[in-house]
């Protein structure tokens, strides 16, 4: 394109974009960009975590009661699934560094599968909420156990509102992550990555780990508020 390449530019290095001086600059820029983006993501989820914090302090009773109705075994299984997916992501970056294409593709496909399993389980859980009338709105009804302190319906709705907002936003990030990994897998299948150039795998991995970590916080905050036997 350019009739006047910058002196340092290696014109035909595969994967090097025209405006970078060299591969190192390009790699540094990409990974800095992703780290900064993850910083914005922390602020994004931070808004909801703040709301959670405030209301949990004010309405602990309702939050504890709401939390006890969540399906703990399924939530725990889902946590395990996500941790496994993080492992496959980490291994796929290693495979890319070593240039093992088939291993890389296999691990990426596994990651996508784990992600889809997580989403499927999440959908099942949400469906449970519909049948239990735990979805905020006109049909909301929280049936409390007789041994509990009286639960205020409005405040219980706030718990479930936050539950849906937080897990929903997390699921949206998972869907985007699965999409990104679809593209990465396709690129890996086409042999686009080499031991020298696999930045996309790395930064997609960073994103995936971040989404994973968000869940690692969400799980105890939503499912494990007060699981002690009470009475």
């Amino acid at each position: 394109m350019s009739d006047s390449p910058a002196p340092l530019a290696l014109e035909h290095t595969p994967g090097l974009q025209h405006h970078f001086a060299d591969m190192e600059q390009q790699r540094n820029a990409s990974s800095l960009g992703m780290w900064i983006f993850l910083g914005t993501e922390i602020m994004f989820f931070g808004g909801m975590f703040l709301a959670y914090l405030v209301y949990r302090m004010w309405y602990f009773n309702e939050f504890a009661a709401g939390s006890r109705t969540l399906n703990l075994p399924i939530g725990a299984v889902n946590t395990a699934v996500l941790i496994c997916s993080s492992l496959t992501v980490a291994l796929s970056v290693r495979a890319a560094q070593l240039g093992k294409r088939m291993l890389l593709v296999t691990l990426l496909v596994l990651t996508i599968l784990f992600g889809l399993v997580f989403l499927g389980v999440k959908a099942y859980e949400w469906n449970e909420k519909f049948t239990e009338h735990h979805v905020p709105g006109y049909s909301f009804h929280f049936k409390q156990e007789s041994t509990e302190k009286p639960v205020d319906q409005g405040r219980a709705q706030i718990f479930f509102s936050l539950y849906f907002a937080m897990t929903g936003m997390h699921a949206l990030h998972m869907i985007i992550g699965v999409g990104i990994f679809g593209v990465i897998t396709w690129m890996a299948w086409r042999g686009r990555f080499t031991p020298e150039y696999h930045t996309p795998v790395e930064i997609a991995g960073l994103y995936w780990h971040f989404v994973d970590i968000v869940w690692i916080y969400l799980f105890p905050l939503l499912y494990l508020i007060d699981r002690r036997p009470h009475g």
Binding site: Y59, N61, K149, P150, D152, R155
Partner: peptide, 10 residues
């Protein structure tokens, strides 16, 4: 609050 939601601050 104690009229509207008596159990909030028992």
């Amino acid at each position: 609050e104690s009229i509207l939601n008596p159990s909030a601050k028992l």
